[in-house]
């Protein structure tokens, strides 16, 4: 049996997007491998979420136990280790997310199984499962071929594919919990919400966003003046947050906010996929970057390949004149 077991990810009662996105890939791979895509839900009080996943025309297996109220890598590893033995899936797929990356490599070591992490595409060719990955700032793709193994482990990048439409009604089956013990070593304490600042960038009409290309904080006035001239709010990439140029709550991307302004001006941002995921919903995107290969240009409507310090002051001046 070549079933592809897809671990549906959820947090605080909500299914995560990647859970659905994996269903754009898993059924076809499972079919090629002579099996079917099967969804696995591990949590507490999973009835509603199970029904929702089943709405995508798949069988949903549920391990429902108060012990799994919150994600715990150690518990997930134990449960999945036991289920790999019981169900013998050809592939176990999870999101390449804060959950997936926290236990899949350990599971691979424990079970001596191969792992392809941060996968953006899967193919089954001539009896070999192949994973496509993205490397080197998104400029190179790598094809990793799995050597034959009982189960292939895959973590799949969130946002790499579009989720399919909900389909026919599938089925839900409860499994016995293979791991009822508590874990002694790792304890979930609480969720900590990010601090809320003075501006909610998810509500901004115009965002001027900065990245590593700003180079140092003494260059901030260059972009602040542009923002002031067009009544924009300042936002930025992870690099800008890490460097302390903008507060954390103004970070755009997977680990920050998803924004939808009518105008997004990205300056000195190369456009790692984590950033693109947070801003591609903007209506009009302008990108200014020195590197013609920068991935930010793949989502831009207007592009300028140049040094931002040569372009932006002039742009500010012109926009002020045109007012």
């Amino acid at each position: 049996m070549g079933n592809v077991l897809v671990l549906a990810e959820h947090r605080q009662g909500e299914l995560r997007d990647v859970s659905f996105e994996m269903l754009a890939v898993a059924p076809a791979i499972a079919k090629d491998m002579g099996g079917e895509a099967v969804v696995l839900l591990v949590g507490s009080g999973m009835d509603d979420l199970a029904k929702k996943m089943a709405g995508y025309g798949v069988k949903v297996l549920v391990v429902d136990d108060p012990n799994f109220e919150n994600f715990n890598a150690e518990k997930y590893q134990k449960v999945l280790s036991a289920l790999i033995d019981d169900l013998k899936p050809a592939v176990l797929m999870t999101g390449h997310t804060a959950q997936g990356v926290d236990f899949m490599p350990a599971l691979a070591v424990e079970k001596n199984l191969p792992l392809a992490a941060d996968t953006i595409g899967l193919a089954y060719e001539d009896g070999t499962l192949k994973a496509t990955r993205s490397m080197y700032s998104g400029k190179v793709n790598a094809v990793m071929a799995f050597k034959p193994a009982e189960t292939y482990l895959v973590t799949f990048r969130e946002g790499a594919v579009e989720a399919p439409e909900a389909a026919a009604e599938g089925s839900v089956e409860k499994l016995d919990n293979p791991f009822t013990d508590d874990v002694p070593y790792r304890k979930f304490v609480e969720y900590v919400e990010a601090e809320v600042g003075d501006v909610d960038i998810t509500q901004s009409d115009i965002l001027v966003a900065i990245g590593r290309g700003l180079k140092e904080d003494k260059n901030l006035p260059v972009v602040e003046e542009l923002a002031a001239a067009i009544k924009a709010d300042l936002a930025g990439s992870r690099a800008a947050t890490d460097a302390g140029w903008i507060p954390h709550d103004r970070q755009v991307g997977t680990s920050g906010k998803a924004v939808k302004p009518k105008l997004y001006i990205a300056m000195g941002i190369s456009g790692a996929f984590q950033h693109l995921a947070g801003m591609k919903g903007a209506k009009t995107i302008v990108a200014i970057n020195k590197d013609p290969e920068a991935p930010i240009f793949t989502v831009a409507d207007y592009a300028i390949v140049d040094d931002l310090f040569k372009v932006v002051p002039k742009l500010t001046e012109k926009l002020k004149e045109l007012k």
């Binding site: 192949k130 998104g138 400029k139 790598a142 990793m144 990108a287 290969e293 207007y302 592009a303 300028i304």
Partner: peptide, 29 residues
């Protein structure tokens, strides 16, 4: 190792952006 690096390739970049050309000042204008 149970995985083989089969190949690396440069992904096709699809950009529908309008690239604004010229000297920095012209581009800004």
């Amino acid at each position: 190792s149970q995985v083989v690096l089969e190949k690396l390739y440069i992904p096709e970049v699809e950009s529908t952006a309008e690239f604004i050309e010229g000297e920095p000042e012209e581009k800004a204008e």
